[in-house]
Nucleic acid binder design. Structure first.
Lengths: 341, 341
DNA sequence: CGATTCCATGGAATCGATTCCATGAGTAAG
DNA sequence: CTTACTCATGGAATCGATTCCATGGAATCG
């Protein structure tokens, strides 16, 4: 079963030097002669030697592995984020261990524990929940950590987040100008900072721009597609249904869209729809979807940069990236026929 | 910087036993007394001890980590596959190290090298290229490996793939019955088995059902969105343009759709469009997209099962999963006005 | 009651690479 | 020609957990 693995001793023996010298050559230590450098290099290629990362990490306490915890890989936003962070990390010589919390706190804790056991050099996490014990354990162990997209109250680590407020304000203002009075809001889970912040922004902006602040117009989803369907279904069934929907993330917007299609309602004509998060194909819908857009690639890149600074012992300031409304055709004028039972 | 980490010795000392006994308790070795089990457990929780996975792996040669190499995380097919495989692995107590080859052979090799260095227990890979040296290195080192979605000629490892042929045959037959004569095919890269197989199936079925076999009707893409746009653009610009398009994966279908939109052509009316891979929101397009569907979840689950068998020393047979056409409205009758310059 | 078995336990070797420390060859300075 | 110094090198300790082996006490049997 187990192929007898090639160790640095084999390399050293073939090169005719000691393991110590072979190690020095491999780690680029300048205290080596050109002669032994050349002989070791030859032995490495001949034996196809791959140093055992475990043994190396055990001694040197650096693993060159970072943990990236996202809440749902199937959410295109997090897939893009994972891609961006992973590429940025790779450029710095770090490999990424990806964990998928699946919007579940126990699974989040499970991955964080694994990351700790794997002795990753640092962790980038899109956290959920409050005082999750694993989350606090990171701090107590002084494991370099950066939050991305979301934060946790009372846990003070550098983060990269989106200023959702600006985009949501613009969206609400836009809908108000289009003549909408009742806007249904499909909120994210209130166990996440983004879920809470976006709801607060929506409520404030709705008041400010004269929209209805009827609490029945808010449906609490979980950032996943099915809850978007359920939310749209619920909101359309109200005695006084809304004429526009705003979904707090893209999977819930997709779910809402599915419900609208099933009911034979066309977006932009029978019902306005605006989504938080811009996804490539949202502009390919007919009519194309009005969205609140933010720069995922920058978020991933920035998270890696901050993490490297934390690993380096610094205490970088958190970064907040802008969001903005992109108006397309899905957010038209309310249809007078709608709203009548 | 580095918090003095808690070792098994600290646990043993607090529990008043030897490290050997502590280790036995932790690994569930039956040769332990109820008394020491209880004392060690108490010490573990008090110190919040997380065993160092490196040290453990060094001695026991099992890491409980598997490597999953996908070719593009942003492709929803691979995001779903990663999700399915990761959940199946988690259920077996394995964590997943995700590598993203980004449809690039050097990046694939880079991740495979990393997986080898991390001494993963096994690898699930969607491979590309031919005799990539890293791919061969896996075999020589007898590292348990399973291919998923794709295979590599001349490398004999168990695999889970889709029988693309059945689905493509059905799609071609369907388009022929709808009266299409010239079908443009946006192929995947010929460095992948899926790219080659699907093209072969298309060509054979086209001949069989009396469609044009004009080689100009095939455009070679790279499985990414931009090449789908370029492909559609190219095919529509032919002297004798096709009346239907078939894309070999979903990102290229999205790209093609973008081009059609830009040119003001409506799918299902001005141009039929069929995509390989079913994605949740494809059915939400207007009109909904006709697709060739296969079961991603089963593919991920099966890959993990096969890998466990290989790790267990068995030599499981490869699995081929079915594909089938799902007819929706995007694949209508050809428009007579089209095809005229 | 002595001899054998059973079993929990601790000591010590081990996994593979890194790194401190001592050594000896070679060179420059006096 | 000796002394001081540089510098590549090898030996050995080390990282933290596992596991082989020996030990001693309790239980079991004749």
């Amino acid at each position: 079963m187990t192929a007898p693995s090639i160790t640095i001793k084999d390399v050293a023996a073939l090169a005719g030097v000691s393991p110590a010298t072979a190690s020095r050559v491999l780690s680029g230590n300048p205290a080596t002669s050109a002669d032994s450098r050349q002989k070791v290099a030859a032995a490495v290629t001949e034996l196809d030697f791959h140093p055992n990362a475990q043994a190396r990490a055990l001694r040197s306490t650096r693993t060159n592995v970072i943990g990236l915890l996202v809440s749902d890989v199937r959410n295109p936003f997090f897939a893009d984020l994972a891609h961006a962070a992973e590429q940025a990390a790779l450029a710095e010589g770090l490999v990424t261990l990806l964990g998928n919390a699946n919007e579940s706190i126990p699974q989040q804790d499970r991955y964080l524990d694994t990351f700790i056991s794997q002795r990753v050099d640092g962790i980038i996490a899109a956290p959920q929940g409050e005082g999750s014990s694993s989350l606090r354990a990171l701090l107590e162990r002084e494991i370099p950590t950066v939050f991305v997209d979301r934060t946790v109250d009372g846990i003070d680590v550098p983060s990269v987040t989106t200023d959702s407020d600006a985009g949501i304000r613009q969206a609400v203002e836009h809908l108000a100008r289009q003549g909408h009075e009742r806007v249904g809001y499909i909120a994210g889970p209130q166990t996440t900072s983004t879920g809470r912040d976006r709801l607060k922004s929506f409520a404030r902006a709705a008041g400010e721009f004269g929209l209805s602040t009827d609490p029945a117009l808010t449906y609490f989803g979980d950032f996943q597609s099915a809850s978007g369907s359920a939310g749209a279904h619920h909101l359309l069934g109200l005695a006084q249904p809304p004429t526009a929907l705003l979904a707090a993330d893209s999977p819930m917007a997709v779910g809402a869209l599915a419900t609208l299609n099933r009911k034979g309602l066309r977006i932009g004509r029978d019902m306005a729809l605006v989504a938080f998060d811009d996804i490539e194909w949202f502009s390919l819908l007919d009519p194309p979807l009005t969205v609140i857009s933010h720069d995922v690639e920058a978020m991933g890149r920035t998270a890696v940069r901050l993490l490297l600074e934390v690993i380096d012992g610094q205490k970088p300031a958190s970064v907040v990236l802008p969001s903005e409304l992109i108006v397309r055709a899905s957010s038209g004028t309310p249809d007078a026929s709608l709203g009548q039972p």
